[in-house]
Amino acid sequence: MLQTIMPSALLRGTMLDQFARNVDRLVEAAVGPVLTSAPAAWPALNVWRDGDEIFVEAEIPGFRLEDIEIMASGDSLTLRGRRESAVPEGATPLRVERSITQFERTVQLPVEIDPDAVEARLTDGVLRVTLPLAESARPKRVQIQSVGTGGRKVLSGGDKKK
């Protein structure tokens, strides 16, 4: 039930990616930051950061692993999917609310990620993509050095034993 897309299956950004980014920039110029979402975009996305990883989650019921393609570049993620028409042969549709058979969505990431380390899982129609931050984007511990006279007083010469 749990399937993993290995990083090797993920391709680096392409021209299409670049195109999507340009579109995002236009959108951004017109309506504000892209991360505030477009109303009709499908699938809906939840994006959050936990420690040194960004998570992107989407509900794409009815799409199988082989139906989807995920592209990651340094600062964007594109999800694509295509499946057969949902309407079975020989049937009269009485109600069709699950009509989406293909999608493409690009999300601009607020920090640099490592495209080679991206992983994705599709579990019961829920797609979760894990994007580790690029080394350059990770918080660094700063070494503190004490300088001058404010440091610890060094005791010397005490308790010497004969």
Binding site: I60, P88, A91, V96, E97, R98, G125
Partner: peptide, 18 residues
């Protein structure tokens, strides 16, 4: 929900991910 009418049956399909 999708609802389909076949000669001998109906099929009801629900998206319930997760």
């Amino acid at each position: 929900l999708d609802l389909y009418d076949f000669e001998d049956r109906y099929e009801a399909v629900f998206d319930v991910p997760g």
